[in-house]
Each structure stands twice: as structure tokens, then as C-alpha cells.
Design a protein around this nucleic acid. Structure first.
Length: 888
DNA sequence: CACATCACG
DNA sequence: ACGTACGTGATGTGC
């Protein structure tokens, strides 16, 4: 017998929140008590009720059709405390992990979704249990539908059917709305008839039966009661209407998608760990599963999609419909796309999904499909097409024409939530639940491609999800005025990045190994010396052992502690240097060890066997601010600040003889952006006259002439400028400059006194963030700040600083991305052979043939400076040489 | 797998 | 009073 468990998500999470008042947070300070209470109740319900299908319904949290009817609907309701509203996304993420479907729908409340689902379920003869804290739900009761109302928080539930309602109220389920019509509901601001409470309302209903009958027979009432009922007849009618659950919501999730047959162990563990719900992991016996083989494609069912497994015979049929294909999915395995393996590909025609193995795609008969993939004039929609492009590249299949990437769209719509699976992404839009990749493939060493039937359906499901997502995301991008950011910046950039990555950077490995030998010798000498001074051999790479030597054995003063013991970080060691000669040696050792392991050994490991170059992977959908990040290897953090490390840049060389490396970097781009955005006269003036900004800041803050600014004053001013960009705090500045908090505070107030525009900007941006819930860059890139109104001081302060920093850092990121798109075009327009290789946040690196150098050294900075027009000039400085070191 | 550390902008 | 600078990725240790 099928049994449907329907949970009123909003109602239960509220109950759980107020029932569990002891605070409960993750290590990072995220409140989790309501999610925890909800989860415990959910598990108990699943164990006790053993439903076959489950669904959690949420209010979409915006305007519902009831507001349109009655403006004051829910008007009297207290604002949801931020500690609770923070937890809604956590709960939804957890439900996704547990494999429990949830649903929310604009303009309807959870009640209406539940009402609709319970109606359709009972029409099909299924038994339904609704769980809610809201008595209104009782109107839905019937022979097949029971309502479990929570009592005493969430620990105790009490199922109501028609009989129980009759016993408790003497009413039928349908009369519950009449009850509410008469008595109203203060929590929803439904008025009812003033002075009529539950007792009176029940008496009236027992006598007359319904609101309409009461109103039609007011002649049988007397005195005050008669007056009140007659005076508020309209209120009563409207209240009844408001209390009536709408049972015909347009709803497209399938019965199948709500099926429940136990939690998915893999994704459940992941989701529960993230919330640090270790007791629940134990309770579900999931901890034991850690070591077991979680790879179980058997639990993946075939989808209802029409999937053709394309072999040699089906290729002609596929070619015939290729012109109708727009959506595709390319599945690969491996984090590093330059080494990842192609697993399969699905093309979606209007009503048919075509699956191909890598072998089929590479076969002779698939030449037409490959030509289609390579045709840049054919627009293609997919998920992480940038990665797909690289995977195909290494098996010599060109790819072009990416026009809508749902991963990039998701990133722009919310950059902090983009690491999501297609399943999680789909869930946000009410798409049917599908198995996670981990379930289908297993994870880590247990990864295994399942049989074709399962694989093809899984990939087809992902393709189907992409299909559904594209129009929905397109609409949201339009609403947010982000279409240009998406179509004209990020999508074109995605292809440019792939080109840069395929090109790679040549490395002089002989010279790198030579450097490695130098470092090794120095390291060996240092280790011997340090062990000698310590009087014992120990692992210098272990902060724990090092801490014991320094603080226990040598008795140096403890400056700072970490949560696991003594801190031995560089800033601590620098303060200890005067006490013992060993400290300086440790600092030098640390520096060299870092260079050796990360840069010499690390870089050598990344040289690609097929090209002999290093091919980084720029990630476009990671950072919260809009910057890129770089992986495998990270080429955005190659040493430069200290000479010893800077030498490493000598091994980054042009890939063809006679060519040079050219680098061009923005000068003070963030402060220029700030000058523009804050419209600060002093700051703008400084840049309009191309002054040294730190000296200028020192002059204004200390009230001295240019000649009076000494090195120390400039250093302080520079730190203040950094602080301003980061969202300043006196403590942060004091740490940076090694001064007291008071002194730092004085610097800051002096600065804000001089640069009044900046001061106003910082105030305004925080106000804007509190009002909108997000901040924007000049190109409309967004970042949401859910903690901006938190009552947790730490979270709120962090959100405030982020509000100040993100528009600045993000606009700078917008600008260099624009410059990259323009530069790519300029190289084509001028028919240049020079190649763009790297982006390092404010710097672009090229390799340039000798005969193009004169042109390039003018063109690159010019394009960068013209990328976006601000009220201050942008400035880019160019340099070039035989390698990246020389191009400084 | 979390943590500490340190490389960059 | 609260305890922090903003944004990343790679490495080694140790539970």
C-alpha cells in the first residue's frame, strides 16, 4: 500500500527552531538547531510511519495570491529571526542530500501545495499523512488523509482524521475553515469577527453549520453578539476565504520523483557532515558505511526518458536530427580536465536523447557528429562546457559554440552556491530528483563506470535537467539585468580561457631542476644546523613538533595559540627572533621548503606528457567576488615578493624560439575603482594627476608635504589603503602594522575624515546590502550577503566587510575580464600570432614573436586601459623579456 | 579529512 | 564586549 508523507516545511522548521532554544552552531558559527530538530523529527516519522513517498513543501517566501486578495495578510507577523532564516537553505541542501524531494512555488504557500498533493493522492486511493503545526490543515482530513499536528514543539505528534476532529471540535473537516472565518487567526493577521474566539465560534457553528448560515441568520442572535457579527460580516467571509487552502496548484513534479526507499548513504553522509550532525550519522548507522563500497548503481533506476544508445548503426539517424540538437552533456572523470577521461556524451533532440560512448564518438562513422561539435556557429547548451572543451581537446576532438552554460549561469545568479551538482541545482528550480554522480559512479578510488543502460539514462537525466534549467536561468538573468554580463562577458571568456589553457606555458625543466638542487643543498644545511641547536632531531615540517621544541624545550614565550596547540606561523616567529638564533633559521627553512615542495617539485609534476608544458585550469565559477582561480597547477601564486622565490619565474619561458614573454599589469586598479565608485574628490584627483597613491594618502592623513613623507609614513598609508579596500577594522590594521588598536583606529578616522567620499560610500554600501540582501559590481555581478542582518556579531561584521570589499574587488575582476575579451578580439583583428597565456588578477601574460613586440607593447596596455571607462584613468604598465622573471 | 602554514593579487 | 583584515590553491602532518 502506498503511503504519502507530506511535511509542511515552514511550519515544522519554525516549531523546531523555537523548541530547541539552546544555541547550536557549526564550527564556523552557522546556526543549525532548527535543521537539527527538523531532521530528528523527519527520521522518526520515516521510521514510524514507513511512507513510500515523501515530500516537503515550503512557502516561497514572497507575495502569494492571498496578499493580492488581502494586503495585510500575515501583516502582524513578526519578522523571522535571522538565526532561523539562515537555516532554510541549509535544510534544503540537507534534504537534497538525503534524497527527500522538496517543493516551493511562487505565489503559493506550503498549505496549497500540500492541499493539492493530498487531493490528487487520495483521488488515486493513496493514504496520506500530513505533518504540520498548523490547525488549518485539519480542513484537508478525510478517510484517506490524516493530519499529524505537532504538540509540545516537535517531539510529539497526534494524528487527526475526521473522527478525531469530530470528537475534538464537533465539526467536519470542511467546517475548519468556517471556524477560522469566525475566530480569525492572529498569527496570519486574519481578522475574523472581533470578540469571537474558539468557544463562541464553535457554538455558532454547532448551531448554524457554516459562516454563510451564521450570517444569513443573524436575526436569531441577540445583543452585542448580533451587532458584532453583522458589523463584521465581510471580514468573516474574507477570513474564510483566506483560510481556505487552495487545492489546485499547478504542479509538475511526478509521483515517481517523490518516491522514498531509504536515504542515499553517500550523499546523506556528505550533507550531514557538512552540518556537523555526527549524532545523526551515528543514529542512521552511516558511519560504518564509510569503509564499505558505496558504489551501488543498482539503486539507480532507468529514467522515463527516451534514450537511444548510439552505435555504428544509429549514427545516420542521429546525423539526421543533429540540426535540432541544442542541449548536450559531456561527462568526464577526473578533477584535472587536462587529464580527465571522457565517460560519455548525450545529445538532446526534441524528444529523444542520444548517448554515445567515447569509442563511438571517436569512430569513423561519427565524423558528422564531430563536425557538429566543432562548428562554432551552432549554439550549444550544457553544464561546464569549458571543462568538456578541454577533455575533448586532449583526444583531438575540437569543440566550439558554447552559448549557454548552466554552471556559469548558476554562478552569476549566486556565486557562493555554484559548486552544486546538477541535481542540487535542479532541486532549486523544482526539477525532479535524480541520483547524484557519486551514487552512480561511486567516489574516489571506487569510481566505476556502470553498465551502458544505467550510464546512458543517468547522463540523459543530466541532459534533461540542463534543458529545463536554461529557460529558467535565462529568465532570472534577465530579471537581474545580467544578460550582458552572461552573454557578452562570461560566456565569451569561457572559450578564451579554454584557449589559453590548451596553449599552456612552456617551462625550462632543466633550469627548474637546477634551482631544486640549490634549494635542496641549502635546506640540508639548515636542517642539520637547526637540529643541532635544538639538541634533538625532529620533523621540522610538523608545527606540533616544532612548537614543542620552541616553547617547551627552549622555553620561548608563547605569543599566540591555535586551537590545536602553539602557533608557529611566520608572524609569531618573527617576534621570537630576538630570543633565539634558531628562529631565523626556521624562517629561512620554511621559505625554502615551501619553494621546493610547492614550486619545484609541484610544478615538475604538472608538466603535461603530451605537450611538455604546464596547462593550468582557470576556474570561472569558484570565487565569491568574480575573480578567476587557477588550479593544477595554480599559476596565480608563483613567488615574486622575495628574490629567492622570484627566481622561479625564470623557468617560465616562451614556447617558441625567438619569442618573448610580455606582461602588463594594472596599476592600483582597486583603488582606482574605489575612487570612481565612491566618487571621492581627493582620491580621484590623485589618480587624475597620476600621483603615487600611498604617498598622497600619507600627505593627507598626516597633514604633511610630499617631501615630509618618510618611508614609515608611506608604509602606514599603504596599509590603510589596503585596509580600506578590504573593509577596514582597527584590529586588522593594528595587526598588519604592529601598532596598537587605538593608533590604528586614529589612522582610520583620520583617513575617513580626509576622504569623505570613501567614508560615505562605505556607509551607503552597507545600508544597500542590508536593504537588498546583496551587493553589485559595476557590471551587475551580484553577491548575496545572508548574514548582513545576523544577530551574530562575527557573521554580521564579516558580511559588512564583504559588502565593502566585493564591489571593489569584483569590479576590478569585471574590468580585467573585459580586457581579456577585447584583447582576444584585438589579436584576431590585427592578425597577430601573439598568445594570451595567463591572467593573474590584475596582470595579463603573453608570449610574443619578435616581429610583433613593438605592436604588442603598445596594444596590450591600451586595450587594458580602455576596457571600461571610469571617472579616473585606468593605468597598465607593460614589460617584457626572455622569461617571466625578466618581464617585470 | 581537518588543520596549519604560506604562496599570490 | 564581541574578535577580523578581502579573495584564492597547494602542501605536509596527524587524527
Amino acid at each position: 500500500m502506498e503511503k504519502f508523507l507530506l511535511i509542511d516545511g515552514n511550519s515544522i522548521i519554525y516549531r523546531a527552531f523555537f523548541a530547541m532554544q539552546q544555541p547550536m552552531t557549526t564550527k564556523s558559527g552557522q546556526h543549525t538547531n532548527a535543521v537539527y530538530g527538523f531532521t530528528n523529527m523527519l527520521i522518526r516519522l520515516l521510521e514510524e510511519e514507513k511512507p513510500t513517498h515523501v515530500m516537503v513543501a515550503f512557502d516561497a517566501g514572497k507575495i502569494t495570491f492571498r496578499h493580492t486578495t488581502y494586503g495585510d495578510y500575515k501583516g502582524g507577523r513578526q519578522k523571522t529571526p535571522p538565526e532561523l532564516s539562515e537555516q532554510f537553505p541549509l535544510l534544503k541542501e540537507l534534504l537534497t542530500g538525503l534524497g527527500i524531494t522538496y517543493y516551493e512555488l511562487d505565489t503559493y504557500e506550503a498549505d496549497d501545495i500540500i492541499g493539492t498533493l493530498s487531493r490528487t493522492a487520495e483521488e488515486k486511493g493513496r493514504n496520506v499523512l500530513i505533518v504540520s503545526g498548523d490547525k488549518d490543515m485539519l480542513q484537508l482530513a478525510s478517510d484517506h488523509v490524516k493530519i499529524a499536528l505537532t504538540r509540545k514543539g516537535v517531539s510529539d505528534i497526534e494524528p487527526y482524521g475526521p473522527a478525531e476532529i469530530e470528537e475534538r471540535y464537533g465539526l467536519t473537516p470542511a467546517q475548519i475553515i468556517d471556524l477560522k472565518g469566525l475566530m480569525g487567526d492572529t498569527s496570519d493577521n486574519i481578522p475574523g469577527i472581533p470578540g469571537v474566539g474558539e468557544k463562541t465560534a464553535l457554538k455558532l457553528l454547532h448551531q448554524f453549520g457554516s459562516v454563510e448560515e451564521v450570517l444569513a441568520n443573524t436575526d436569531q442572535l441577540k445583543g452585542k453578539m448580533k451587532e458584532k457579527v453583522e458589523a463584521h460580516a465581510d471580514d468573516a467571509r474574507m477570513s474564510k476565504e483566506l483560510a481556505t487552502i487552495f487545492r489546485d496548484v499547478p504542479f509538475d513534479a511526478t509521483w515517481e520523483s517523490m518516491k522514498y526507499d531509504g536515504f542515499n548513504p553517500v550523499t546523506s553522509i556528505v550533507a550531514l557532515r557538512k552540518l556537523e550532525f555526527n549524532s545523526i550519522i551515528q543514529r542512521l548507522n552511516l558511519s560504518e558505511l564509510d569503509g564499505e563500497d558505496l558504489h551501488d548503481p543498482a539503486q539507480v533506476e532507468a529514467s522515463e526518458l527516451e534514450v537511444t544508445i548510439v552505435g555504428e548503426e544509429q549514427l545516420p539517424e542521429l546525423e539526421k536530427v543533429l540540426n535540432t540538437v541544442e542541449v548536450l552533456h559531456i561527462e568526464s572523470h577526473g578533477d584535472n580536465p587536462h587529464h580527465a577521461e571522457l565517460v560519455g556524451i548525450v545529445l538532446s533532440a526534441p524528444d529523444q536523447y542520444y548517448f554515445m560512448t567515447p569509442e563511438t564518438l571517436l569512430s569513423e562513422g561519427a565524423a558528422g557528429v564531430r563536425a557538429w561539435l566543432a562548428d562554432g556557429s551552432i549554439p550549444k547548451h550544457g553544464h561546464d562546457l569549458h571543462r568538456a572543451d578541454l577533455v575533448l581537446h586532449w583526444i583531438d576532438i575540437p569543440f566550439a559554440g558554447a552559448s549557454f552554460d548552466v554552471q556559469i549561469a548558476a554562478y552569476l545568479l549566486d556565486p557562493t552556491e555554484s559548486g552544486q551538482s546538477l541535481n542540487a541545482l535542479g532541486a532549486k528550480y523544482g526539477l525532479p530528483h535524480m541520483p547524484e554522480d557519486e551514487t552512480v559512479f561511486g567516489k574516489g578510488a571506487k569510481y566505476k563506470v556502470p553498465e551502458e543502460e544505467i550510464l546512458s539514462h543517468h547522463l540523459a537525466r543530466k541532459t534533461a535537467a540542463i534543458r529545463e534549467l536554461v529557460p529558467l536561468q535565462r529568465e532570472q538573468l534577465e530579471q537581474n539585468e545580467m544578460t550582458s554580463l552572461f552573454d557578452d562577458l562570461e560566456m565569451p571568456l569561457s572559450r578564451i580561457l579554454a584557449d589559453m589553457e590548451k596553449q599552456g606555458v612552456a617551462i625550462n625543466t632543466d633550469e627548474l631542476r637546477e634551482l631544486g638542487k640549490e634549494f635542496e643543498q641549502k635546506i640540508n644545511v639548515l636542517v642539520t644546523e637547526i637540529h643541532g641547536m635544538a639538541g634533538v632531531e625532529f620533523n621540522l615540517n610538523s608545527p606540533k613538533q616544532l612548537g614543542e621544541i620552541l616553547f617547551d624545550r627552549l622555553g620561548l614565550p608563547v605569543e599566540k595559540k591555535t586551537k590545536t596547540g602553539y602557533s608557529t606561523s611566520a608572524d609569531v616567529l618573527e617576534k621570537l627572533a630576538p630570543y633565539h638564533d634558531i628562529v631565523q633559521l626556521i624562517l629561512v627553512y620554511r621559505q625554502l621548503a615551501k619553494l621546493q615542495s610547492t614550486y619545484v617539485e609541484g610544478l615538475l609534476k604538472e608538466v603535461h606528457p603530451k605537450s611538455g608544458k604546464v596547462h593550468t585550469f582557470f576556474r570561472q565559477t569558484i570565487t565569491a567576488t568574480g575573480r578567476l582561480s587557477s588550479q593544477f597547477p595554480n599559476l596565480q601564486n608563483i613567488p615574486i615578493r622575495l628574490e629567492e622565490g622570484r627566481k622561479l619565474r625564470k623557468v617560465f619561458v616562451p614556447s617558441e624560439s625567438g619569442w618573448s614573454i610580455l606582461s602588463s599589469d594594472y596599476s592600483q586598479i582597486e583603488l582606482r575603482v574605489l575612487a570612481h565608485m565612491a566618487d571621492d574628490p581627493g582620491l580621484k584627483d590623485a589618480f587624475l594627476h597620476d600621483m603615487d597613491i600611498h604617498t598622497k594618502t600619507a600627505m593627507d592623513v598626516f597633514g604633511v608635504t610630499k617631501e615630509q613623507v618618510d618611508g614609515n609614513m608611506r608604509r602606514s598609508a599603504k596599509a590603510v589603503n589596503f585596509g580600506i579596500v578590504y573593509g577596514i577594522s582597527d584590529y586588522g590594521l593594528s595587526q598588519n602594522l604592529g601598532i596598537t588598536r587605538k593608533e590604528a583606529g586614529d589612522f582610520i578616522s583620520q583617513y575617513l575624515e580626509v576622504f569623505k567620499g570613501v567614508s560615505r560610500y562605505m556607509d551607503d554600501i552597507v545600508i544597500e546590502a542590508k536593504k537588498d540582501g546583496f551587493v553589485k559590481t559595476m557590471l551587475e555581478r551580484r553577491r548575496y550577503l545572508p548574514d548582513i542582518n545576523s544577530s551574530n556579531f562575527n557573521l554580521r561584521s564579516f558580511a559588512n566587510r564583504t559588502a565593502m570589499n566585493t564591489p571593489i574587488q569584483g569590479t576590478a575582476a569585471d574590468i580585467i575580464k573585459l580586457a581579456m575579451v577585447h584583447m582576444d578580439q584585438a589579436l584576431k583583428d590585427h592578425k597577430l600570432n601573439s598568445r594570451m597565456l595567463l591572467q593573474v588578477h590584475d596582470e595579463l601574460v603573453f608570449e610574443v614573436p619578435a616581429n610583433e613586440m613593438e605592436q604588442m607593447k603598445k596594444l596590450v596596455p591600451e586595450v587594458m586601459e580602455k576596457a571600461l571607462s571610469l571617472s579616473v584613468p585606468l593605468k597598465a604598465e607593460v614589460s617584457y623579456g626572455a622569461n617571466w622573471y625578466e618581464a617585470k
